[in-house]
């Protein structure tokens, strides 16, 4: 399992994302924003941070970087892509996911352990959880308030594309308590919480982030056995 982690100027959590990939049994591959090569990876993570200093809008400049042109193309072809925090903002700006993330309605930067409910396990990045499972993952953001028009939110709910929802308190005013969503195909997931921080008991109260990487491994394993079955 080779997982690419993109580094933009201003990315902060690329190192932790690579560490989480390694800790969960994968091979982490560094991808540079200015390169147009994905180096044949099996999946891509867009990490948290402040790409391009959050200039213009969070994720707005990063969305047009050379590596993103390749990520967008590959995502449309089914490549698993996970956007965490700033990565979620980049995915929305790139129109790989609908809606947008604006400043918290309380205008504060939140950094805390957040309870979430797994609403959909029908994605590449959440299939190792059980539907309705309660998990706890770190959040740390000022602009994670998910907004979209009523029609889009209804579509997300009707199609079971809200993957994670804030419970026991909505930290930012996000519509329908949305913490993370997926695309129609389930290969692209974006969320504000940081699963890469919840993989090691030394630095986090839970290891609930491991489920994301287990989900990817299960998906890639199933894909490989199907491909082998087809060619055997």
């Amino acid at each position: 399992m080779r997982v690419g982690v993109v580094t933009f100027p201003g990315s902060l959590d690329d190192v932790d994302a690579r560490r989480a990939v390694t800790l969960t049994g994968g091979e982490a591959v560094s991808l540079w924003h200015a390169s147009d090569s994905l180096q044949g990876v099996d999946a891509v993570i867009l990490p948290g941070g402040f790409s391009y200093g959050d200039y213009l809008r969070c994720g707005a400049i990063a969305r047009f970087s050379p590596v993103m042109a390749e990520v967008i193309k590959a995502a449309h072809a089914g490549l698993p892509v996970l956007g965490i925090c700033n990565g979620f903002q980049v995915l929305c700006e790139a129109h790989l996911l609908p809606g947008a993330l604006i400043r918290s309605d309380r205008r504060t930067f939140y950094c805390k352990d957040q309870d979430l409910r797994v609403e959909s396990t029908d994605t590449v990045w959440s299939n190792a959880f059980t539907p309705g499972q309660q998990i706890n993952i770190i959040i740390k953001h000022g602009e994670g308030n998910y907004q979209a028009d009523a029609e889009t939110v209804k579509m997300l709910e009707d199609e079971n594309r809200v993957v994670f929802r804030y419970i026991n308190g909505n930290p930012n005013g996000s519509l329908h308590d949305i913490a993370g969503i997926t695309n129609e195909r389930g290969n692209v997931v974006g969320l504000m919480p940081h699963p890469e921080h919840n993989v090691d008991p030394v630095t986090a109260p839970t290891r609930d982030g491991i489920g994301f990487f287990e989900s990817l491994a299960r998906y890639l394993g199933a894909l490989a056995s199907r491909t082998q079955g087809g060619t055997a």
């Binding site: 604006i102 400043r103 918290s104 309605d105 309380r106 907004q147 005013g173």
Partner: peptide
Amino acid sequence: EILDPQGKA
């Protein structure tokens, strides 16, 4: 229709 937290501040 979009909340403007900066404007509110």
